[in-house]
Structure formats: C-alpha cells, structure tokens
Simulated scan of single mutants.
Amino acid sequence: MNIKSNFVKVTAAAALTLTGVATVSAVKPDSTTANVQAATTKVKINYVPGYGINIWDNYNHGHFTGQHAPHGTTWNVINQATDKKGRTWYQVGEGQWIMAQYTVPANSKKAKKVVKTTKTTTNATATTTKKAKKSVQATGDASAVITLASAQLGKAYVWGGNGGNGFDCSGLTSYVYSKAAGVNLGRTTYDQVKQGSTVSMDNLQPGDLLFWGSASAPYHVGIYVGNNQYIHAATPGQGVIKQTLSSYFYPSVAKRVL
C-alpha cells in the first residue's frame, strides 16, 4: 500500500509540474506580442495637400530614395533617431526614413488646417495679375524680386493663395515676379517650370527659381536669394520662410527667367 500511495503522489506531483510549465509557456508568447504592439507608433504625414515628403535611406547624410510619403497617409514607425543637427527622424521601413517635423500622431485631432482663400480675394488678385501680365522674356530686376519676396516673410501659407492673406508656393512666386519684375510665370508649378532656361545648381544666381520633384511636373517652387538660401511658402505650419539649401530637401531643377 505504501508503494502504491507513493507512486500516486509522485504521479500527481509530476502532473502539476507539467501543467505549471505548460501554463508559463502559454503566457510568454502573449506577453511578447503585447510588448511589440505597444512599441508600434503610427504617424500621419502632415505637409501640404496634394504633395508629399521625401523618403531617405538614412537619417544622417542620407540619400533620397526617389520615393515620397504623400500628405495624409499613415505610416508605422519602427525606429526613431536624431541626426547631427538635432532633428528627429522616423524609420518607416528598411532603408526608409522620414523627418518627424512633417508628421502628426495618426489619431491626432490637431492636424494643421489648410486655409482657403475667399472667392472675392481670389478674383481681385486674378484681375491685378492679368493687368501686370508681360512676356517672360521681359527684363527683370533680381534685386526687386528678392526685396519683395523678403517682404512676404512671416505671412501665412494659404492653399490657392497668391496675395492678400497669404500664399501657396507657386502663388508666392507668381505674385513676386509679376509685381517686382512684370513677369508672368503662370499660376502653377507645372506652368512655371516651363519658363526661362535651365541652369546648373552650381551656378545659381539671386532671382532664380528652384523646383522640387519631377523636372517636368514639380510639386514645389521657391526663389533663390543668394548665400545658399531661398524663400518659399513652405507648409501650413511654417508659412513663408527663408531656408538654407539642404541635401535632405534639395531642388531637382533651377530655372532663370530674369
């Protein structure tokens, strides 16, 4: 009887031990999965409607991959890093990095809003531009262009704006060249990139137009003002600003119209 009793006790203890191991093994994968999910961050690209931001292969001295993250799209952040200039970058894929400053949390309700111009302002501006229309071959004054562009610094980014309350990128260039030099560039980046002659990025002169994106259908434009700097209507959050040319956001083509 003692032998049988001891055998039963040993068997019961073994069963409890095996059950305990099985229970631990079942919990561990769930815990690991939970940690991975908690570490995943989602962000939304918040740049300019219809445009996107460049995707780079590294966050320090990276190269443009030729791909863009369109405005309004949501991305999973798998890593985060800070470059030598103190700027935050998000890794969204293997060899794919985007600048954090052009994103908001995916569930954010504080996304930057794009201001729309009123019909009255648009019509009034269109009338003024029409009166000032001249051939792009007209002699221009680069100094006057830079002076007028500088006077717009700090104004708001307004989607479709070309004067008055603010500007979008091509609205700013159209307004400045028309008012300062009597040159009609056209209203969109597609029109403006067809004007003047293409110049090397190593041979820029104040007053040259800088374009980003496709050489035939760019999505952004600014005015080179010298000293490796340019003025442009950047984003709804930044408005009209002056920036230094950077390899992280480098123009694809430059045009001389003056």
Rank of each mutant, 00 (worst) to 15 (best):
V48F: 07
V92Q: 07
G50W: 12
Y102R: 03
Q67E: 13
S135A: 08
D83R: 05
D57R: 01
H63W: 00
K113N: 10
H61M: 00
N46K: 00
D57V: 03
D30M: 14
S5T: 13
T122L: 10
D57Q: 02
V104G: 00
D83L: 09
A124C: 00
L18R: 02
N79S: 15
P105S: 06
I45W: 01
T139V: 11
A15S: 06
R87I: 11
K44I: 06
K84Q: 10
A39F: 06
V10Y: 07
A38H: 12
H68K: 08
A39C: 07
G140D: 12
K85A: 13
A126I: 07
T103F: 11
N54Q: 13
G140T: 13
K28T: 15
R87G: 05
V104A: 11
K28Y: 15
T127S: 12
A126M: 09
T19D: 03
A81Q: 15
P105V: 05
T88V: 15
A22I: 13
K84G: 05
T103D: 10
T118M: 03
V43S: 07
K133M: 11
I53Y: 09
L16R: 11
S135Y: 03
N58K: 06
K85T: 10
Q101H: 09
D57H: 01
K42I: 01
V21T: 14
G62Q: 07
N54V: 08
G86S: 07
A100G: 11
A142I: 01
N54E: 11
K85C: 00
T103W: 10
S135V: 04
D141M: 03
M99C: 03
I45P: 05
V36H: 07
V115L: 13
V115Y: 10
A124Y: 04
K44C: 04
